[in-house]
């Protein structure tokens, strides 16, 4: 059975149906691409998955259990963490602290033991610090650990955002247009970053992307959205040759 299953998800904004009976699934340890035109409802699906919006109807299952929640942070607790199309970092905090915020939910010590610095504080802070360094190490960000997040170059900021999301130990990582605004070499680097996620973390990745080279290159499965509906679902090969997808999104080669 698939790790993440979305069933008949519908969201209406007034008269507009932004997400219309969307159903698809994401297999464990795989990378699934979600593509479609601007305004097709891709990011809205992400927002539904992370409880930014409540669906009008439909269900989401993670590992067979129905996901229900009201606040985005609950999605993180349940195992879904996302990144944003326009990078959202804690800009005036050190790089390593960005990652440590991601570790927050695994933390145990109370506010009081934090204030009075009881032994549990020291023990856990050390663990968190090492864990954050390990994660930064995976993405070659250790040299920047003490720099402000805002001072990183664009490509590194994207990596840090992914790193922070991974710090929450998600079961499904949702990447919203990770290659947006990147030049070709940065995109190359991003592909290797995503490869590393696959290699080290064994989690499912669902990514929204417009860069077809990237999507076709790394995804095992692709879901195509058009005007809020799923119009195709399949392997990159199938999608490339799907008449409807070509008409709606990919276009013909001239």
């Amino acid at each position: 059975m698939a790790l993440l299953e979305i069933k008949d998800l519908t969201l209406r904004f007034g008269g507009l149906t932004a997400v219309d009976n969307v159903s698809f699934s994401v297999e464990d340890k795989s990378i699934t691409g979600l593509i479609g035109q601007n305004g097709a409802g891709k990011t809205t699906v992400f927002n539904l998955l992370t409880y930014v919006y409540q669906p009008n109807s439909g269900q989401i299952f993670l590992d067979g259990k129905e996901m229900k929640g009201k606040k985005p942070h609950q999605a993180v607790t349940q195992g879904l963490t996302r990144t944003f199309q326009n990078i959202r970092l804690f800009r005036n905090m050190p790089v390593i602290d960005n990652v440590k915020v991601g570790c927050l939910q695994q933390g145990k010590y109370s506010v009081a033991s934090g204030i009075f610095r009881l032994p549990s504080y020291w023990k856990e802070e050390k663990e968190t610090h090492n864990k954050a360094l390990e994660l930064l190490d995976v993405f070659d960000l250790v040299p920047y650990a003490d720099h402000y997040a805002a001072s990183l170059p664009y490509g590194q900021q994207r990596k840090l955002e992914i790193c922070r999301a991974l710090a929450t130990k998600p079961r499904v990582l949702l990447l919203d247009e990770p290659a947006a605004g990147m030049n070709p070499s940065e995109t190359e680097e991003l592909m290797s970053t995503i490869d590393r996620i696959r290699q080290y973390f064994e989690i499912a990745v669902l990514l929204i992307e417009h860069d077809m080279k990237l999507v076709m290159g790394i995804c095992e499965k692709i879901v195509v959205l058009n005007y809020g509906c799923v119009i195709a679902e399949g392997t990159p090969e199938e999608i490339k040759n799907n008449e409807e997808v070509i008409n709606a999104y990919l276009g013909y080669e001239v």
Partner: peptide, 19 residues
């Protein structure tokens, strides 16, 4: 750190699991 992250970007904080 959670409090500071809210100052920096509350949407990102929420998405990183900060209540």
């Amino acid at each position: 750190r959670a409090i500071l992250s809210i100052r920096e970007d509350d949407i990102a904080a929420e998405a990183s699991g900060v209540a």
